[in-house]
Nucleic acid binder design. Structure first.
Lengths: 90, 90, 90, 90
DNA sequence: CGGACAAGTTTGCCAC
DNA sequence: GTGGCAAACTTGTCCG
């Protein structure tokens, strides 16, 4: 409704209204996307349940894989550290 | 009880491994996207702060707009409820 | 490491047993009360049904009134938000 | 606002408005009490944390005691069953 | 790091 | 008794 087409014509004096509005819209857009993805995930769980899978177990599996992935990432990071240390010793 | 769709196809006994793997991968893919979007949002807040905007106020503005949208949704929901309550009371 | 506040006072070593017991008992007492109230509510629904009222409609009515109350609370909260947002924007 | 002092004078025809209102108010009163107790419990957890206790461990302890109590209740129930069976055999 | 906020998980209830 | 729905509780995340 209250469109602010003309910068400087409103009561905003300290901040650029256009910039503010752009930022707000970008964030809102992204949050909507995020919500959409969360819904998609829920749908997949529902579909899995409909196919006879146990959602709870499914969540556990994904959690386990996430932990494993984190550990692997940690190890890779450590490898990087070692490598750079070796570089410095060369 | 547990029907064997793919007997002898591997060490899996109760569930179709392919289906399970597909589902897990789809969920993991979506969760990664979700994390990426959350990161994008954080980036925008950081950028806004760098441009002299107060992140706290920004969040409040977005919260206000969300509250407004929620209220509108709530009213729609309430209308639905009234309708069904009236139906049941005849 | 763990400081001994009451040495020799029993097998407890890190925490004051009396305080812990008191807290646990207070919580359990309150949870029991809560359960009792939930039971009372169920009883009223049962009684209402026995008197020919439709429990589902009853729940909807209570839900409607709750939604209204929530909306009023939401508006108050929104007013607060506006005030603080305006304060921060000066 | 919309007071229904005179039964039969309004648009309600099938149910007694007074009875309905009484029931709704009783339930709402009880739900408010329930919420109040839940808040009290939260306060105790906060207080415990302020005193250096770990709320998570506290919850686990209470959960354990609850399980034990349930088991004891189960055993008592079984005893009752045995007793009545013995009575019938006497 | 500690509290506030949101997300996810669990639990209880009702209908079938 | 089971499965879906809604509410409660718990967990994780993010900011200050």
């Amino acid at each position: 409704m209250a469109e602010e087409k003309t910068p400087g014509a409103g009561h905003n004096s300290g901040v650029a209204g256009d910039q503010l509005r752009t930022i707000v819209e970008r964030i809102e857009r992204l949050e909507e996307e995020k919500r959409g993805i969360a819904d998609d995930i829920k749908d997949i769980y529902a579909e899995a349940k409909a196919n006879g899978l146990d959602a709870k177990v499914l969540r556990q599996i994904i959690q386990l894989r996430k932990v494993d992935a984190d550990k692997r990432a940690e190890e890779a990071e450590k490898r990087e550290l070692y490598m750079s240390a070796l570089d410095m010793l060369q």
